[in-house]
């Protein structure tokens, strides 16, 4: 079934969606060895189907699988890449911990990690494109411990090679939108850090062919890194903007931003659902700044929706899709 993505203000998502039962139980059972990876893959299809349905009903043009298989954006991949082992407990806040994975050997891609979910989501997307979304090498590096490589320059390139391999699998399967998530980058907004990622992105994206190359970056001091990332080999930066009250926009204009923009217009950290009028107002604000045409603006949430209740997440998507529809008539 063919689906025509609107030329102006296409809508999309960053990726994750609230876990739909029994996704979380399945993740725990798989880890505990109560079900096999194969059984897990079979059973996780139902939550993926629900996540896809919600996005379609909300009117999103370019959707995701909802990342229903992933309990965490780093641990999920660490569990599937050779060279990692589960880590000890490290504190996130208060008395709450996560097992920060540890790199103990040479890193190696051994099997597809996200392709099956992508293929399934695509099979039920009613023709809508599905983004292939993968955690980026900088974030994998920063949010893992390293006992093997020592040199970050070497480690990030090894991670990039693994991600490249998975991206090749996605492209082979038919993915045309590839998004690399790099939330860790904005926490260390220095030139040398941005350059580390640039080299890694060259490895991931070089010569991929007819594929939309996207990097998602969120929170932290994005304005500090903007001058260092504009030359990244990507077509689109997908950015959190609403949470930081769009303070980044004047910087984008000042630096002559000319790539596509994933325009984050709903805050994923508040239960308050932005109205259609509010979101339309944000789009108008961007257009009035007159530095980017509507064909280059992809309207989406600030970040993954996973921490929201499902009904709130869906309502936010619905309103942003409606706001984009109205904006298309005007701009």
């Amino acid at each position: 079934m063919a689906y025509s993505v609107p030329r102006k203000f296409p809508t999309t998502v960053v990726g994750s969606y609230p876990k739909i039962p029994p996704a979380m139980d399945l993740i725990k059972k798989r880890r505990a060895g109560e079900i096999s990876e194969e059984e897990f893959r079979k059973l996780i299809k139902e939550p993926i189907r629900e996540a896809v349905r919600d996005q379609i009903e909300a009117g999103i043009d370019i959707i995701s699988d909802g990342e229903q298989s992933r309990e965490d954006m780093v641990v999920y991949f660490a569990e599937r890449v050779e060279g990692y082992r589960p880590g000890d407990w490290v504190r996130i806040f208060d008395n709450v911990y996560f097992r920060k994975p540890v790199i103990v050997g040479d890193l190696k891609w051994v099997r597809q990690m996200i392709v099956e979910d992508w293929v399934y989501a695509t099979s039920i997307s009613q023709g809508r494109p599905v983004k292939g979304i993968i955690t980026g090498p900088y974030t994998m590096m920063e949010w893992s411990f390293d006992l093997r490589y020592g040199r970050r320059e070497e480690l990030i390139i090894e991670l990039a090679r693994i991600i490249r391999r998975e991206v090749e699998e996605l492209v082979k399967a038919g993915a045309r939108y590839i998004q690399v998530d790099e939330p860790a980058l904005s926490t260390r907004p220095w030139r040398e850090e941005a350059e580390l990622l640039k080299d890694a992105l060259e490895v991931i994206f070089k010569g991929l062919g007819d594929v939309k190359r996207i990097v998602h970056i969120c929170y932290g001091r994005l304005e500090k890194i903007i001058p260092y990332i504009l030359e990244y080999p990507v077509d689109q930066f997908d950015l959190e903007l609403k949470n930081s009250n769009f303070r980044l926009l004047p910087y984008l204009k000042e630096y002559g931003y000319d790539k596509e923009l994933g325009f984050g217009v709903v805050d994923v950290h508040t239960l308050q659902v932005e109205t259609v009028e509010e979101i339309k107002g944000y789009i108008d604000k961007l257009m009035k700044m007159d530095f980017i045409p509507p064909e280059k603006v992809y309207v989406d949430p600030d970040c993954g929706l996973k921490r929201l209740p499902r009904e709130v997440a869906k309502a936010k998507m619905k309103n942003l899709a409606e706001a984009a529809r109205i904006a298309r008539e005007e701009w």
Binding site: R91, I92, F93, D94, K100, E142, A184, T187, Y219
Partner: peptide
């Protein structure tokens, strides 16, 4: 609420 503590994957209240 929680806020990221500098460049760490750790959050303070």
């Amino acid at each position: 609420g929680l806020l990221r503590y500098f460049d760490n994957n750790f959050f303070y209240r």
